[in-house]
Nucleic acid binder design. Structure first.
Lengths: 275, 275
DNA sequence: TCGAGAAGTCGCCGATCTTCAGCATGATTC
DNA sequence: GAATCATGCTGAAGATCGGCGACTTCTCGA
């Protein structure tokens, strides 16, 4: 029979923690003196304590451990729980590895540009209704002409139009004959017609960055963004979106107050060779 | 000028969070209406918000982010912070990988034994004074004879003797001529003499398991323990200790109430091939 | 062997850490 | 009149740690 202090020394677990485990029903002392409430442990109980510590290390919460130790869980059930935990742990390892990759990628970008440059953020973009026209246009800047078409096509529906957006459907950079879709996010449903299509963009995960400044330097943002996608093991999974968060009418290519968000839908590249 | 709700929608960050970031001085609205306190944001501020999100993803706390954004931190300093964070993240990735390895190892053990078997715990064993004799003995069980020598050598000093311990100095299993050290942990300093040495065992990290039962089955515990050491990429870094947490005098080889803790000092094996 | 002080133990309450989420209440705007 | 905005308080998560006052037990000297 060991007093809590002795047991604590033996097992390298603090007295506080032992009391907490007692209270939580994880490890009750072999005997409690009804006179003074002193807890007395048996050396044999260190085995159970070790099991608790091991399970805790595996990532189980104390509550889960309580369930695992409490009911008559046999080896087979325990194995099942461990396999589940193993799967979660694998995910965790992968996530932390990805995070490391993002940090490293950012460091490389700073070293290359010697500037804090662009912050790329992975976020889930919700589904979104859009009214747009899709055409093959001469080059990127000429997308501006399409917004007039959308506006006139919508007519009074323009009232529920949100921010202007462009979608680039090509899979690579094109000097000419660009497959472009231009339109407005919609706050409410609106009737299509007049060459304007209303449809819904599905929810997607996208790598995003914001470009503050003139359009002529937008390519720098693209550089950083595509670099990020490649370096972090993603692949492009849909048309790139450009959200014109701030611009003017008429559009000036060199207005430094413009704010543009670029979103590249991505999915994790099937791992090959990574652990 | 965007109201907080619009900005929240645009940036995919909750209003609560935006208010919190304002309060924390991380992202103050471009303008606050003094009349009603309404926060108004500029689209341009999404860039700063993205930076916050990116840094948060890198593992910085909001307080650290505040410092990184607040003072005039230049690209070089930012790089320095990121490199630090990268190092921490590398450690984290490694730790999580190790944890995964431990879970997998445990699953294999259960599958092999079809039993919950032994829980191996890695712990830091503090430095510890010990009074002992070291001799080459015929075989493992005959270590018992050494305790009498220690006891008589210590004489009245036995009063401050703690639990009996054996240290096995051989680097492998031996059938005979075992290099054994036997003695007692000391609660207080004690004079050496009479063939008994008093010295201090340094603090060490050890893989530990507890064997509840007779000594004749102690080898099962060793099996599990050594298996664990090998499977988790450790190597043995000192003499194995056996702590006799519960035993009787005289010793019986088949007493099932005995409790013995085995501690194998280990260090992480120099990684080769792992990331 | 007794007494005094030291050490151990008790339960309880709160702090820690971080990042919000929820709710109440009231003002304002569309 | 409904949605949006404000402030501000509380709670939540999880596993302890720290501190308090009150009691009990141990130890050592006289």
């Amino acid at each position: 029979m060991l007093k809590i202090g002795d047991f604590s020394t033996l097992a390298q677990v603090s007295i506080k923690t032992l009391r907490y485990y007692d209270e939580a029903g994880l490890l009750e002392p072999e005997w409690v003196d009804p006179e003074n409430g002193y807890r007395y442990y048996a050396a044999r109980q260190i085995a159970r304590l070790h099991r608790i510590l091991a399970l805790k290390d595996f990532g189980f919460s104390l509550e889960e451990i309580g369930r695992l130790l409490g009911e008559g869980v046999n080896a087979e059930q325990m194995r099942g729980m461990l396999v589940l935990q193993q799967a979660e742990q694998k995910k965790r390892v992968e996530e932390e590895g990805d995070r490391l990759s993002r940090i490293s990628s950012r460091i490389r970008l700073i070293e290359k540009e010697n500037d804090m440059a662009y912050d790329v953020v992975l976020k889930t973009v919700p589904k979104q209704k859009i009214a747009s026209v899709r055409e093959t246009i001469a080059n990127y800047p000429s997308v501006g002409a399409l917004y007039g078409k959308v506006a006139s096509g919508l007519g009074p529906g323009m009232a529920s139009a949100g921010i202007p957006v462009a979608l680039w459907h090509d899979h690579e950079y094109k000097e000419k004959d660009v497959d472009a879709e231009a339109g407005f996010y919609l706050r409410q449903d609106v009737a299509a017609g007049g060459g304007v299509t209303v449809h819904e963009l599905a929810e997607t995960t996208a790598a995003c960055t914001v470009h503050n400044g003139a359009y002529k330097r937008l390519s720098e943002a693209y550089d950083a963004l595509l670099r990020w996608v490649a370096e972090n093991g993603y692949q492009i999974a849909g048309p790139t979106r450009e959200l014109y968060l701030h611009c003017t009418k008429p559009v000036r290519q060199d207005d430094e107050t413009y704010v543009t968000e670029i979103q590249v839908p991505v999915r994790k590249q099937p791992v090959a060779g990574s652990q």
